[in-house]
């Protein structure tokens, strides 16, 4: 089976062709960097996505956040649920951990902006 992927690692968006036989990757073509190759492998086994979203502060402001590592794609909405029920208090520095090890994914939700 040939699987055609669009690499999402960077904005270049390479078209990658993965050949799979009996559940095993036989060949990967079309990537232009090491991370692209890794993406293709992971995308065929366990697709991962970085979540970027917001959390509310206690006084109603909106703080942008992201997962510091990609999380399994099928856990996106579970993670969103956990993020939705989180509120933070200010001030907050960029990079501060808001939720540790979200949904057991090993990824932390961190602040992506300074806010006071």
């Amino acid at each position: 089976m040939i699987k055609n992927l669009t690499c999402i690692i960077c904005p270049i968006g390479c078209n990658i062709e993965v050949e799979i036989k009996k559940g095993e990757i036989v060949s990967i073509k079309g990537y232009s960097c090491k991370r692209g190759e890794e993406y293709a492998k992971s995308e065929c086994k366990n697709p991962l996505r970085t979540i970027t979203t917001t959390v509310f502060t206690i006084d109603g402001k909106v703080l942008p956040v992201k997962t510091d590592k990609p999380v399994p794609k099928e856990k996106l909405f579970d993670c969103m649920k956990a993020i939705k029920s989180t509120k933070v208090s200010l001030p907050i520095e960029i990079g501060k951990v808001i939720i540790e090890n979200i949904e057991g994914t090993g990824s932390n939700v961190i602040s992506t902006n300074n806010m006071r």
């Binding site: 959390v55 509310f56 109603g60 939705k84 029920s85």
Partner: peptide, 9 residues
């Protein structure tokens, strides 16, 4: 309404 399902606000 608010994002995040609105109700917490």
């Amino acid at each position: 309404g608010r994002t995040k399902g609105g109700e917490q606000w």
